[in-house]
Write a protein that binds this DNA or RNA. Structure first.
Lengths: 415, 415
DNA sequence: ATAACTTTTTAAATTTTTTTAATAAGTAAC
DNA sequence: GTTACTTATTAAAAAAATTTAAAAAGTTAT
C-alpha cells in the first residue's frame, strides 16, 4: 500500500505564500498573482484555504492606487513562532520570535563552551527544551529552530564539522529528534548576511557581501539573492586569505592571514602591548588580561574619541580594506555591509577602508560598490536564524505545524 | 487592436526542450518528464509539435534499462545553426556551427584592432555579414550570434563599456539590426567558463572557477550552475587583484596586480630580459620584438623541456597559485579549470600552483577543490559563444527561426 | 455630481494539464 | 519458452488552472 499526497503543486503555492508573507508582511491577491505568475483565482483559492487552516488572516484594505482598494492578507501572529539560536565560542543566545521577528519572551543567554566540550550538544538541547517549556508556547506552534554557529558547516545536510559532533547522524537530525521541532543550522556569518539582505540595510539587494567583524573576520555572501555556501559549504573563509607575505602567525598555522592582521582580537592584543609600553590613552585602566573585554573597551573608547584606539582601528580598517579590494574585484557586489560586533565602530573604519579601496581597486569597480554599516547590530544573527527557518518553510514544516492544529491535509490512498 | 500570443507556457516548455536537447543531444519523453517535472502526455504533445515545426526528429531507440526501449528525440541538424565570434585585442574569429557545435564552414580569422578604432564595430558587422553570405546559410536558420570579447561588459543589457562603442543603443541591438540575427555578447572569460561547464572538463559541475590564462589572467565563474557576472557585470576581474605590496607596475596604473606578475605577457617580457642577459635556452634565437610570439614560443619550449622556460612558467604558476588560494577561500569551488591559451602548459603550471595552495590554503579547503586542465583549448571561447546563444534561446529566437520556416505560431486577435 | 476610467474581486466557461488505465515492448528468472 | 516484472507510449477521463466576463469599489477630470 502506497501513500500519496495529492495537490502537491497547490501545497507548494501555499508554502510560497506563507514564506512571502513572512518577508513582505502583507500582500493582496493581485500582488501575489504578479509575484508568483499565477492567476488571481488560483491565488484566491490558496489564500482561502490558508485562512481555513488558520495561517492567514485578512488585514484590512490598503490605500487605492486608482481603483478598488485591495484587501490585504497577512500571517496570523499566533500561528507561527520561530526559535532562534545564536552561538559563539563561549556563549549561546536562545530566543523565540513571532512572525514579525519580535521576541515573545526574554532572550536566554548561557555560557556554553564549544571547544573540547563533548557534552555541548546535550547541553544545547536541554537549554532549548527548557526555554520552550519556560515560555509555555506549544511545540507545534514553533515552525522550526534556526541555529547560527561558528565552524565548517554543511547547511543542506545539517552537519557541523568543527563543533558539536553528532556522529554519523546529522546535527540537525539529532536536535529535531530531541526537541520535536524541525531544525536548521548555518554558519554565523551566513545568517548575518541573510538578516542584512532580508531585513537589514541591504534589503532586497541581490549581490551583497556581509563582513562579520568580530573576534574573527567572517564573510557571508548573498549571490543572486541567495546565500552562497560553496561546493562543500565552506565558502566565505575570508579570515584566512593570505594578505601579507610574512605577517603575524595565525591560529590556523599560516602566516599573514587577514584574521591575524585585522580582527578585533588582534586589535585588542595590540592595545595591550601599547598600554604596557606606556601609550597615553583612556584605555590604560582596563583589565588587560581579557582580550575580549579589551576589544569591547577599545570600540567604546574609539567612539568616544580616544586617539590611540582610533589609530589601532584605522590600522585594522586599512587592512580590511585591502582584503575588500580583492573581494570587490572577484565578486563585483552591489553592496558591502560591515556587520557583527565591530559594526559599532563602522564609521571609524569607513575612512581607512575607503582609502585602501582607492589604492587597490580599479576605480570603476570601487565606484559601483556601496559600503554600508549594519543597523541590525547584535541582533543580526538571531534574525538570520529566523530567516533560515522561514526560507526552508516547506511541506514538512507545515505538516509539523498542522498535525495538532485544526484541520489536516487532504490525503488519498492509492490502491 | 491588440495582438496576443496564446500558449505562452506551452511555448516556454518547447523552448526548454530545444535548449535541453542542445546540451543533452538526445532524450526520451520519460527523461524530459523527469527533467521538467511535467507529465509525459504534456511532454509528448510538445515534442510532437516541435516535430511538426521541424525542430525535432526521432532519433531511434535507446537500449532498454529493463523494460520497453525509449524512443529518443534530438534536434534536427538542418534547423538550427549558430554564429559564434571570438574577439581579442588584435584578431577576431568567426564561425558557424551546427547544433552539435561542429563547424559547417571554415573559421574566418581577421585582424581587427579593438583599441582606438572607431570603425571596429562596422568592420565586425561587415565581416559577419560577409561570412554568413559566403557560407550560403540563410539568415533565418541562424538562431543567434554569440560574441565573446574583452572589456567591461554588461551581458544582460548588451553593452561593452570598454570597446566597440555603440553610443546610446546597445551593442547587441546594433548588431542584431545590421545582421538580422539576435545577438548576445559576453566577456571572453565568462564564455570560456560556460564552455568548460557545458561541454568541457567541468561538465555539469555547479561551482566552477575557470582561469583564462592568456595575455591577461581572466576569471569566469560558474556559481550554482550559472555564469555569475556580478552586480554590474564586472565580476571576475582577477587580473587586477593586489597580490604583492610593491610589485611591478600594471597597465591599470596600480602596482602588484596578478596580471603584472604572472600573465603570459609578463613571462614573455622576462624571457626577453633573460635572453638579453645571455641565459642559455632554446629560446635564444626567437624574435624578441614581439612579446606575444615570444609567449607562444616559451610555452612550446617549456613543453619540449627547456629549463629556462619551465623556470619562468613555474614562477608565474606559483603566483597564480597564491591568487587561487584566495579564490578558494572565498568561493570554495568544486573545480578550478586552467583554460585559455596557457592551458597547453597546464601540466607544467600544476606543480607550482599546488605548492602555493599547500602553503596558502587551509588544507580542508585545498583538498576539497580539484584542479583541472582544459581539453577544449583554443576552441573554448567559440563553443562558449554558441552556448550563450542557446542559453538565451527563447520566444524571440524561435520566432526569428520560424518566421520564414514552415509553419507559423498560433495567434489570436483580441477584439 | 456625474461620466469615464482603474483596480480588485468573484463567478462561470474554457483550456490545459495531469491522472488513470490500457497497450506495447522489452528483461530476467525458472 | 513461459511467467512475472519493468519501462515507455498512447488514449480517454478527471482535475486543475487560466481566461473571460461581470460586478464591486474607488479615483479623477469636467
Amino acid at each position: 500500500m502506497e501513500l500519496k499526497v495529492k495537490n502537491v503543486k497547490s501545497a507548494e503555492l501555499k508554502n510560497m505564500i506563507i514564506k512571502r508573507l513572512y518577508f513582505d508582511k502583507a500582500l493582496s491577491c493581485a500582488d501575489m498573482s504578479e509575484l508568483f505568475d499565477k492567476s488571481v483565482p488560483s491565488i484566491s483559492k490558496a489564500v482561502n484555504e490558508l485562512m481555513d487552516e488558520g495561517f492567514v488572516v485578512e488585514q484590512g484594505y490598503a490605500p487605492s492606487s486608482g481603483g478598488r482598494r485591495p484587501l490585504m492578507y497577512s500571517l496570523r501572529h499566533e500561528a507561527i513562532y520561530i526559535l532562534t539560536v545564536a552561538m559563539d565560542q563561549l556563549s549561546t543566545r536562545i530566543q523565540i520570535v513571532d512572525i514579525l521577528n519580535n521576541p515573545v519572551a526574554k532572550t536566554a543567554i548561557t555560557e556554553l563552551k564549544l571547544l573540547n566540550n563533548p557534552s555541548a550538544l546535550q547541553t544545547l538541547i536541554d537549554h532549548i527544551n527548557d526555554y520552550i517549556f519556560s515560555t509555555g508556547i506549544p511545540v507545534d506552534k514553533i515552525a522550526g529552530i534556526g541555529i547560527g554557529m561558528p565552524g565548517f558547516i554543511n547547511s543542506t545536510e545539517g552537519y557541523n564539522y568543527t563543533y558539536l559532533d553528532s556522529g554519523d547522524e546529522s546535527l540537525t537530525s539529532v536536535i529535531t529528534r530531541e526537541t520535536g521541532v524541525p531544525t536548521f543550522i548555518d554558519n554565523d556569518s551566513s545568517l548575518i548576511a541573510l538578516a542584512e539582505q532580508k531585513f537589514g540595510i541591504a534589503k532586497a539587494r541581490k549581490d551583497v557581501m556581509v563582513i562579520n567583524l568580530g573576534w574573527g573576520i567572517g564573510l557571508g555572501m548573498i549571490i543572486n539573492g541567495e546565500i552562497y555556501r560553496g561546493h562543500n559549504g565552506f565558502a566565505g573563509e575570508f579570515s584566512h586569505i593570505p594578505l601579507s607575505e610574512d605577517g603575524a602567525l595565525c591560529t590556523c598555522g599560516k602566516r599573514g592571514c587577514l584574521e591575524a592582521e585585522a580582527s578585533m582580537l588582534v586589535v585588542a592584543e595590540k592595545a595591550i602591548q601599547g598600554i604596557k609600553k606606556g601609550h597615553i590613552s583612556s584605555l590604560k585602566n582596563i583589565d588587560i588580561n581579557q582580550s575580549k573585554m579589551v576589544g569591547d573597551a577599545i570600540m567604546e573608547a574609539a567612539n568616544n574619541g580616544d586617539q590611540f584606539a582610533i589609530e589601532l582601528l584605522s590600522d585594522a580598517g586599512y587592512k580590511i580594506g585591502k582584503a575588500l579590494a580583492i573581494l570587490i574585484h572577484i565578486m563585483n557586489p552591489a553592496s558591502i555591509v560591515l556587520s557583527g560586533r565591530g559594526a559599532v565602530v563602522g564609521k571609524i573604519l569607513l575612512a581607512p577602508i575607503q582609502q585602501a579601496l582607492n589604492k587597490y581597486c580599479i576605480p570603476r569597480l570601487a565606484n559601483s560598490t556601496e559600503l554600508l554599516i549594519s543597523d541590525l547590530g547584535f541582533n543580526a544573527e538571531l534574525i538570520g536564524a529566523a530567516v533560515l527557518v522561514m526560507e526552508n518553510f516547506d511541506k514538512e514544516i507545515k505538516n509539523h505545524l498542522i498535525t495538532t492544529n485544526q484541520s489536516s491535509m487532504e490525503k488519498t490512498t492509492k490502491n
